[in-house]
Amino acid sequence: MNALAARRPRPATTVLLLILALVLGAAALVTFATRPASASSAASGDQIAQGKALFQASCASCHGINAQGTMTGSGTNVAGPALAGVGAAAVDFQVGTGRMPMAAPSIQAPRSKVQFSQEQIYAMAAYIASLAPGPAIPTAAQVDFAKGNAAVGGEIFRVNCAMCHNFAGSGGALTRGKYAPSLAGSTPTHIYEAMLTGPQSMPIFSDSDISVVGKRDVIAYLKAISKEPTQGGSRLGSLGPVSEGLFAWVFGLGLMVAAAVWLGKKAA
């Protein structure tokens, strides 16, 4: 046996090493796949390349081949805004709620069916985040609403959010067909990202405006009220006097008319 052969690993060691490499690789994959874009440095070059390819296939027609934005060609109307600096959080929100890619140009991109897998969304987010620094996707701890204070969150929500999204988060109308969507069923991460990035008509609530803890409290409040049993029966969408008034006029008056008809009818 020569020196080289002496240093050659035995078959069992090779197998063990292979298993170890597989486990480590899988662990790394899982780590990257679940929370990749918290910082652009965490994203691998492969992921950015994949994201770029996806972006150019699905988004570039409006946002430009290098995400520089495009104009519609009529006046100052923007077909798709430039995306440098919007951050991974904006991509995860817009694509993760199905708002992007938009099916057709319209006044507001509605929430709809999600077109990409979460992994693809993270890849696109990594690509956009690599263009310029922007808000990152919040970590699991930042959106862990179980740790939030719903009472404080309710106070922040009523001052900062309720005028558009309604006291119960049911949404409401804005100008010229735009609207603030209902917050029911939104995931904590998407709520956080919406505050952070200010999608569409919504203003930005940066971490210096509503703090990281404050954002978590707001999410805790929204989750708390969604679980709360109603006090007096159907909420009628929590829309206030419009739906309640309609119900009273239709069913209340209807019942009274029926009673009047019965009163006026002769018994058999």
Binding site: I156, G198, P203, I204, F205, S206, S208, D209
Partner: peptide
């Protein structure tokens, strides 16, 4: 309602403070 002072540098473009 936080009752904390606001630095001018805290206010990013597009944001709104109450």
């Amino acid at each position: 309602p936080e009752n904390t002072p606001i630095k001018a540098s805290d206010v990013v473009i597009g944001s709104v403070f109450h």
